[in-house]
Structures are given as structure tokens and as C-alpha cells.
Write a protein that binds this DNA or RNA. Structure first.
Length: 473
DNA sequence: AGGTGATTGCC
DNA sequence: GCAATCACC
């Protein structure tokens, strides 16, 4: 009897557990041929490439434990997929959907190709809690504000039935002459020392994603509601990169958190809402496919952004003279990640105080974050810069001194990433330029020499931003 | 998912 | 003198 074969195309679903496409395919075929295609046209940042390489290795290890091998390709997915069926006995081709405009267009074409070739092609949602096109408000439109969006989505996600699937995936090692090894993809630049540093901070892969979730549930979730805002404490889940690469399913996270009795409802609700923000971002991106490049409020096309490459560079490398901003930017560059509270602060500083275009921030974050994700990243930048769907401009000009004092009261976070400020007293840790000359000398930090003066005046630039907003409203 | 400046309320 | 509160940005 002929063995029935099907291909599962791995994309941002680099996991074997709770993978709807894999589960459905297992019920249709005897053995699954797992493939991954590196699509050079897909936007991917430097740090993401590093993560991807690690994650593919981990996935392949898990597949090899089940006697298969992840087949890797590089190039235009349409052409590669077309070539896979030549002289091969493959009847099924399944994948989990992606929701960014590039993937949607690309995958549509591939789906019609497979139809022509008479291959059974079915796709699944393994990436979001809900399909963006299914979520509508009472007037039949999509939501533009998070709170009502989440009230609705949380309810339907909660009341949905979740069947625990029993895994019995059988892989098959099928040979293709155009397949490659992971290292042939050249995802990491060996000359670049940058990713060596990231290495120390992260363990990519499905197995580690599960450990990370358990660690969050057991050690952090109890203090999440208040603790999540404190960059000086390690109380966030750090699941974002795993979610981006699909090393863990958002539905699984949602359900596990929901059923854990030891987490009180306030902490649960706050955390689930963060998972909700991720879906909300894709809800926006689905309905505003130009969102990565164009402001959602088009009056922002007239906004008087400044052109100042020097200030941009100082922001990127963490030399603005504002401690909480610099600490955040240095954390990002060093670890590939930044605490969310600080992301908002540095975003507000770039777009409001420096008056630099939010796209510049979007690009830098996309290149340097381990969790760089088209949806969350562009939605976040539009939100903080005030051109997003629900933004009101003056509402989000953060005062980085107050933010620092409130969320990093002892300057522990600032000192961790800015050694120059090591011996500055609590009183001045977020505004060191206000120290007397004697204090500067006695704490070994002369402002303007050991650590820069603020590159802009906070009060002045706040007012400048407000008048800039007036010119377009 | 804020900030500012003015006013009020309290010592 | 100062913290809490509010209206407005």
C-alpha cells in the first residue's frame, strides 16, 4: 500500500505542539514532510535572523527525534513549492496563516497554484487568538480602540471550546535536490560581534518557550499587574520572541493562564490584555495594510518631522543624556529586547522631544529586537507617536524624568545599563544634569564629559511638539 | 498605557 | 508650605 504524504510548510509557527496545521495534516496522511523556506523578500531584522537560525536548529532537533528532517530551502516560495511536487507522491500541503500584507498576497498565489496542481491545500490559524476579519463591532465595522475591542474578543476567546489534541505526528525524511542546510542560509554574520552578545540573553526554541511560560506562571504572574511596569524588576513574561516565531501558541498561553488558580484575576486580566494587544495590532494591520509605512490618520502626512541624523544616532546608541531613555536604548542594543514601559518612553522621546519620524524608530526596533513583529511594532509606533487609530497627541508626551522616578525609583535599571551613572544619588539619577558641580565630581560623573548633557530641553521640546500637532489639526 | 499649572484644602 | 485635585492641553 502506498504511503500517503503531506507537506507542512513551517513559517512563523516553529513548534510541534498545539500546531493546528500539523494536527489536521496528521489526521489526513500517514507521514508529514516538514519544510521551511527562507524568503529573501520577507522583511527580517538582523537580530531576528539570529533567533531564526537557533529556532530552526531546535525545531529540526525535535523533528529528528521523530525520525524526520526539516527540509530547508531558500528563494521565492512560489517557485520552490512548485518544484516540490515534481516526481513526488505528495497529496497534501498545509500551513498556518500569517496576517501581514506581504504574506497574505504571496500565500494567496501559492494557494491557487496548489489548486491548479490538484493538491489538497488547507490553512489554519495558529498565530492569533482570533481571525481579524471575524471581529466586528455592533455597527459592522472593525474596532479602532483597544478597550472595546478586547472586551469583545476576550469574551469570545474565553467562551470558545478548546479540545486538547493528542499528538501523534509522524515525519518522513524525503530528499529534495534543492534543499539546504541551516548554516547555508547565512542568517548570522560571523564577523558581527553584535549577535554574540544577544546569545547570552536568550534561548530560542519551542522547548524553551514552554519553560519560559511555566517560569512566568510560577514565579512572576502573581505580581504582574503592578510589576509589569517596573523595568528594574524582571516580572514580564518575555514570551514575545517565542510568540513571534510561533514557538508557542497564543491560544495555549491564553488557556494556561486562564486555568491557573494561583494567579488572581487582576493579574490574569492584565496579562491576557497584553496578549490581546498583539491580536489588536494585527486587527489594525489587516484593515490598514499600509500601516507600516503610512500613518493611520493621514493628516500626519503633513506633520513637520525634523531631519536630524545626529540626534537619531544618539538615540539609537543611548547617548541622549536622558538616563531612562539611554538605559532603554542600551538594553535594546545589548540584549535584543527592551522593557515595554521603556519602549513607550523612548518612543515618546524620539517622536515628541526629538520630533523625528516614527518610521525611524520602527526601523531601528525592527532591526534590533528579538521580538520584532510587523504587527506589534508598527502599531506600537503609531500609537506612541500619536498618528494611530485611537491616539490623541498631547495625551502621550511622556516626561522621562517623572517616568523614571515612578517606574525605576532607585535607578537600578538605569545604573545597570549606564555604568557612568553608577554612583549618582537617587535624587539625581533621572536628572543628573541638575547636580551641582561638586556633586558631579564627588560621584565621578561630570555631565558633559563622563555622561552627556541632555541633547534637548524637555520642557521646550514638549511645547514644540504641541505646536507641531496644532499645525496639522 | 499622561503631564502641567492653578486652585483648593489642610497643617 | 505642601499634597491632593481638577481642567485643560
Amino acid at each position: 500500500m502506498k504511503t500517503k504524504l503531506g507537506i507542512h510548510w513551517f513559517r512563523q509557527d516553529l513548534r510541534l505542539s498545539q500546531n493546528p496545521s500539523l494536527e489536521a495534516l496528521s489526521n489526513k496522511v500517514d507521514q508529514i514532510v516538514p519544510i521551511y523556506i527562507l524568503d529573501p523578500k520577507e522583511r527580517m531584522g538582523s537580530v531576528s535572523k539570529w533567533w531564526l537560525e537557533q529556532s530552526l536548529k531546535n525545531l529540526n532537533d525535535n523533528i529528528e527525534r521523530k525520525n524526520g528532517k526539516l527540509k530547508i530551502f531558500e528563494g521565492n516560495p512560489f517557485d520552490i513549492i512548485k518544484s516540490l511536487f515534481i516526481n513526488k507522491n505528495i497529496e497534501y500541503f498545509y500551513w498556518n496563516r500569517l496576517y501581514d500584507p506581504y504574506s497574505i498576497t504571496r500565500d494567496k498565489k501559492i494557494k491557487s497554484l496548489l489548486k491548479l496542481e490538484d493538491i489538497n491545500c488547507v490553512t489554519f490559524n495558529g498565530y492569533l487568538l482570533n481571525e481579524p476579519w471575524e471581529i466586528k463591532n455592533k455597527s459592522g465595522s472593525f474596532f479602532k480602540v483597544f478597550t472595546p475591542y478586547w472586551r469583545y474578543c476576550n469574551e469570545i476567546t474565553r467562551s470558545r471550546k478548546h479540545n486538547k489534541k493528542i499528538q501523534n505526528i509522524k515525519f518522513y525524511n524525503l530528499n529534495f535536490k534543492n534543499s539546504k542546510n541551516i548554516q547555508d542560509l547565512n542568517l548570522t554574520n560571523k564577523k558581527l560581534k553584535w549577535t554574540d552578545k544577544i546569545n547570552k540573553h536568550w534561548l530560542p526554541g519551542e522547548n524553551n518557550a514552554q519553560l519560559q511560560l511555566q517560569k512566568f506562571i510560577n514565579q512572576k504572574a502573581d505580581n504582574y499587574s503592578i510589576g509589569r511596569d517596573r523595568p528594574d524588576k524582571n516580572l514580564t513574561s518575555k514570551l514575545s520572541p517565542y510568540l513571534h516565531f510561533g514557538e508557542i501558541s497564543p491560544i495555549e498561553i491564553y488557556n494556561q493562564i486562564r486555568v491557573t488558580k494561583t494567579i488572581n484575576s487582576e493579574n490574569k486580566d492584565k496579562f491576557l490584555a497584553e496578549i490581546g494587544w498583539r491580536d489588536f495590532s494585527y486587527n489594525l494591520l489587516y484593515h490598514y495594510p499600509d500601516m507600516t509605512k503610512q500613518p493611520i490618520q493621514n493628516k500626519f502626512n503633513k506633520f513637520p518631522w525634523l531631519n536630524d541624523n545626529k540626534n537619531l544616532k544618539k538615540w539609537q546608541k543611548g547617548f541622549t543624556g536622558i538616563p531612562i531613555v539611554d538605559a532603554g536604548m542600551r538594553q535594546l542594543y545589548e540584549t535584543g529586547w527592551m522593557h515595554n514601559r521603556v519602549r513607550m518612553i523612548v518612543g515618546s522621546f524620539l517622536t515628541k522631544n526629538l520630533l523625528l519620524h516614527w518610521k525611524l524608530g520602527e526601523q531601528w526596533f525592527f532591526d534590533t529586537l528579538v521580538d520584532a513583529d510587523i504587527g506589534s511594532n508598527s502599531a506600537g509606533w503609531q500609537w506612541i507617536s500619536g498618528c494611530g487609530a485611537d491616539a490623541s497627541p498631547y495625551f502621550r508626551i511622556f516626561n522621562p524624568i517623572l517616568q523614571g522616578q515612578k517606574f525605576d525609583p532607585k535607578g537600578k535599571y538605569v545604573k545597570k545599563y549606564i555604568p557612568e551613572l553608577q554612583n549618582v544619588t537617587n535624587k539625581f539619577i533621572h536628572n543628573p544634569w541638575e547636580m551641582s558641580e561638586e556633586s558631579q565630581i564627588s560621584c565621578g560623573c561630570r555631565i558633559g564629559k563622563d555622561y552627556p548633557n541632555p541633547i534637548v530641553d524637555l520642557k521646550e521640546t514638549r511645547n514644540r511638539a504641541l505646536s507641531a500637532f496644532k499645525t496639522i489639526s
